[in-house]
């Protein structure tokens, strides 16, 4: 089922925000939009989210796990 079919079936076809890129910035933007109660279309070129940050082991300066 395509996206528009899915949404029309559920709740009409509300406007959303297009977010291009599924790295840390794109994920953050999409989450903020979604948490605000709006639709985010998160478009990622590769097979999964994560971008560069997922490739990092730890982040500075906290030395926290990246994932």
């Amino acid at each position: 089922m395509s996206i528009s079919e899915k949404h029309t079936a559920h709740n009409g076809d509300p406007q959303g925000v297009l977010v291009i890129g599924g790295g840390i910035a794109g994920i953050q933007a999409a989450l903020d939009i979604a948490d605000s109660g709006y639709r985010a279309y998160l478009v990622e070129k590769t097979t999964s989210l994560g971008g560069r940050m997922a490739q990092l082991d730890k982040t500075f300066p906290t030395i926290d796990c990246s994932i």
Binding site: G16, L31, I33, A34, A40, E44, T46
Partner: peptide, 11 residues
Amino acid sequence: HPNIDLLTCSE
């Protein structure tokens, strides 16, 4: 997240 439509392998 139910409000995010995730489209991978997409451009």
